[in-house]
Amino acid sequence: MRARISARFDFAKLWAASAVSNIGDGVTIAAGPLLVAQMTQNPALVAGAAFAQQLPWLLFGLISGAYADRIDRRKLVVLVNVLRGLVLAALAVSIAADVASIPIIYAVFFLLGLGETFADTASVALLPAVVPQEKLASANAKLMATYTISNQFAAKPLGAWLFVTAAALPFAFDAVSFLVAAGLVATVTRAPRRLEPKKTNLKADIKEGVRWLMNHRVLRTLAMTMSVANVVFCAAFAIFVLYVQQRLVLTEVGYGALLTTFAMGGLIGAVIAPRLQRRLLAKHLLRAGLIVETLTHLVLAITGDWLVASAILVVFGVHTTVWGTIVITMRQRVVPDGLLGRVTSAYLLLDLGGAALGSLLGGLAATALGVTGPFWIAAGVMLAICVAAWRPLREA
């Protein structure tokens, strides 16, 4: 009984830490593009900020997984959150002192992304040590709902409003959120399983995790599918702030409000995801998600009406939450604990590595084809992905 109560309290602390840090993250996600767009209207430079934050996944993603399987995952999350808080505080000071520049912003976003590679990998691997296997799907759904409410629904308009009030304010807010989240995770008392000391080197550890992922047909298919899908998704959404301003003709506050429609869909998805998983096969839900993603890009490429854009973003938000809940729970259940950090990092390398490449290409595509160009490209590529992944996903 005491163990169950302790587990519930520890999950509550992780849950609260997730809520706090996600509010801060959402504020920065909304304010970051506005800060860069205030300095330049060059699509390549605007998209470069997103690329700078995603680049560490390409450079350090596999290394972060190896360390998550070697050291105390809880302490790793705490340390990284403290460091990210300090980095954001420095950015807020530079903005307030009017010395911030695009290179400084890129450097800060790169460091935030570097911290994210370690914190996200360790957090996903830490959860099964706190939550029983039979509760993982429910716990992941709660975390996804919290992410949606905090990061997408509440934080985006808050970030835009804080930026309009004072450009440094959203980044100072995020700095505090990271420090609070670190304090909450530090109080988790249910100790995770002690990881066995590693007698191999990092290279061998990394190879073992990559090999395990590549030998698992369903997870390999999901990783490869999302890697390519994220290239075109992030190519389009890296310049979304310009798309909103130029195509939909909305203000900064309107941009933040539009982002909340995606969050509304995510919240709906978090509520219905467990029920859908009980009633429908995973392969049907995953295939439906690919169709939704294709239609989202197509609609955004065609429309100039913010109401239509809002409607499709709601549907897209439902898809991302349902898809994410299925995939994360699957990994946590089928991957051995001693390999979970490395397999997760290998999966995220493909997932977020594609996002980094897309963010880099998005600015170039928008410069050459206009702000709707990346959405047209994304729609075509997603259609091809649907055809290629349809059969392999039958085993999901």
Rank of each mutant, 00 (worst) to 15 (best):
L219R: 06
L219N: 07
L219T: 06
Q245L: 02
A223T: 12
A204E: 15
G209Q: 11
L248H: 07
R211D: 12
E208G: 00
C234S: 12
I239N: 08
F233T: 13
E208S: 11
N230P: 02
V249T: 10
M214S: 11
R220Y: 01
A238D: 08
A238S: 15
L222Q: 09
M224K: 01
V231E: 12
T221W: 09
S227K: 01
V249H: 14
V218D: 12
N201R: 04
H216M: 04
V244T: 15
I206W: 08
L213Q: 07
A238W: 08
C234P: 00
L248V: 05
M214P: 00
V231W: 07
V249S: 12
M214L: 13
H216P: 00
L213W: 09
R247L: 03
G209E: 11
Y243K: 07
L222F: 04
F233A: 13
F233W: 14
R211T: 14
V249D: 14
A223R: 09
R211F: 02
S227I: 01
K207N: 07
C234F: 13
L242Q: 12
Q245S: 12
Q246D: 14
V231P: 10
V218F: 13
I206G: 02
V244M: 10
A236D: 09
M224P: 00
D205F: 01
Y243V: 04
I239W: 02
V232L: 11
N215W: 00
K203F: 13
V244D: 04
V231I: 15
N230I: 02
V210I: 15
K203A: 14
Q246N: 13
K207F: 07
R217T: 13
Q245V: 00
V231N: 09
F233K: 03
N230A: 06
A235T: 05
G209M: 12
R217W: 06
A229M: 11
M224Q: 08
F237N: 09
H216F: 03
A223Q: 07
N201Y: 06
T200W: 04
L202Y: 08
I206C: 05
G209Y: 11
Y243S: 03
Q246G: 02
F237L: 11
M226H: 05
A229H: 06
S227Q: 06
L219F: 04
K198R: 15
A223E: 03
A238I: 04
M226P: 00
T225Q: 11
M226R: 08
A223D: 03
L213V: 05
D205Y: 00
A236E: 08
A236K: 04
N201F: 07
A204I: 08
V241A: 12
R211S: 15
V228K: 08
K207A: 14
L202F: 06
D205R: 03
F233H: 12
C234K: 05
R247M: 07
T200F: 02
E208C: 01
V231T: 09
K199E: 14
V232A: 11
Q246S: 10
R247I: 14
M226T: 10
V241Q: 03
C234N: 13
Q245T: 03
M224W: 13
M226I: 10
N201P: 03
W212Y: 15
V210D: 01
A235Y: 02
A229S: 14
R220W: 06
R220P: 00
N215Q: 15
R217C: 03
A238Y: 05
L213Y: 08
K198M: 10
Q246E: 15
F237S: 04
